[in-house]
Amino acid sequence: MTNRTFVLTCLTPLLIFSLAFLAFPLMRLFLASVEGDNGWAVYLDIIRKPRYINTLVLTVLVSLATTFAALAVSTTAGMFLVRNKFRGRNILLSILTLPLAFPGVVIGFLIILLGGRQGLINQITPGHVVFAYSVLGLFLGYLYFSIPRVLLTVMAAAEKLDPALEEAARTLGANPFRVVVDVILPGLMPSLIASGAIAFATAMGAFGTAFTLATNIDVIPMVIYTEFTLSANIAMAAALSIVLGIVTWILLLIARSLSGTTVAAGG
């Protein structure tokens, strides 16, 4: 066997995988979206009809808010956990990463227990405070399962930061705030972008949490589900899936190109 045929043989599993699990289903999905009564106009409907476009915008906004909040919370917590060794640190860390083990439905349930009509917040506060079924509840649920993903990535990167860089900045007159802006954040940037991308993509496609919480509001995965199961509008469900995929992909592409420039600036 020559070297060339050997390499080609090694590529066969990848080829089969790409065709079977990516190319064929996506192609079928795309065809399904334009095979409906309206044909290509199904994509115009998404832009024209407020129900679809508003849901799409809301989904993107909630996902973006989740991503940035998760980045902010996890970066500060992660830096603290890396820099400080204390009793119970490992237990705290395992609690923080616990949501990784929960399916979305359980997380939605947790949010209902916290902010539902029978929830903790409603019981201990005077007046009627129910947020579980609002955008806020959805945001908190998404944030809850995004934090561990971002936290673990940020901690791995924070451990590799050279403490001498921070010391160098301080000897040059940088106050602690400048050290964060000029040294720590640029050092963490590649991992912030990578984990932020994961958090964003997960939030865009999250279904279980949305299914439990989104009774009054709609997010795209919910709309796809209702179009498909209730209205049997397969073309619209397929078109929305395609649009959800493309929007997520474009935003991730932008994030990746940003990370490219920071890496280039960082050498």
């Binding site: 050279d162 001498a164 010391e167 160098a168 000897t171 640029p186 050092g187 600036a265 960082g266």
Partner: peptide, 15 residues
């Protein structure tokens, strides 16, 4: 303190 320091690893800002 206004001290200049050269570190063993140089600690130059890579960005």
């Amino acid at each position: 303190r206004q001290v200049g320091m050269v570190f063993q690893s140089y600690a130059l800002f890579p960005n």
